[in-house]
Amino acid sequence: MTTETIIRVLAALLAPPLIGALCFGLDRKITARFQGRIGPPVWQPFYDVAKLWRKEPMVLNRVKTLYVYLHLAFMMMVMVLLVLGEDMLMVLFAHAFSSIALILGAMSVRSPYSRLGAMRKIMQMLAYEPVLVLMVVGIALDNASFSASDIWVRPQPLLYSLPLVFLAFFVAALIKLDKSPFDVATSHHAHQELVKGVTLEFSGPYLALIEITHFYETFLVLAVMAFFWITEPAVGVGLAAAGFLGLIVVDNISARLTTRSMVKIMWTVPLMLTIINILWLYR
């Protein structure tokens, strides 16, 4: 392993939570402005995590805490596999297992709220997982390779060949980042669902780890959006910024849907968009 690889891996582990936290802070600020409020400082997520880290590590049982570490480890695995240029489908699986670890952690106590949140998280995964897998397949078909390293060397932006997949991914990202109308399992900001559902029984440093994982996830979603125009990185970042703003707007203007209608919507419109786009690639 070369020094360069080590540096890249370290960068992939350290930079995303910082950027993700800033984005999350921006999210809260912009949301506040939409609502005519001043809002917290952009650094608020850092304060939150630092505070949570100092709180008492309250648990219900020992087993549960293992899953918090797994939740974070799988998300870090996503980053490492991505910078190493590994198979994108494997990256996606690692990403899914990050959520599964959280679900198992939430289900390992007999707390009805946390269990309901976990069940709803499973439904969320059921809703977006096919879209994400097909998105990766679409990218792979277009690149003729599943390798993440090949995505950098492309003659033209991915958005040209996968416009509908981008739209579908946008909807999936709403679920991924727990935004309305799909924040059924848990939600950030002050509006709670099921008294914080899946994260309810985690507190103190464990909640901090979950927050950090969420920062990774925010970064990941934005990075994937940027990948759709990676040939010119500036445009890619612009695309991600536009997508992020779109997510915040949708979050602010929509009411929460039921789990059932979430799955129905995801398995019809975005999934169909993805399938149509992919079928077009086979031509």
């Binding site: 087993v63 899914a96 198992l104 289900m107 106590v109 269990r115 499973i122 997982e129 097909l134």
Partner: peptide, 27 residues
């Protein structure tokens, strides 16, 4: 491809559900 993708998403659901159930404990 579509069938395999749908199948793997559904597979995940029933395994996770069951795993969660059997390890349910408090102290």
């Amino acid at each position: 491809l579509m069938l395999v993708v749908a199948g793997s998403a559904l597979t995940m659901v029933f395994w996770v559900k069951w795993m969660g159930r059997i390890q349910t404990v408090s102290y």
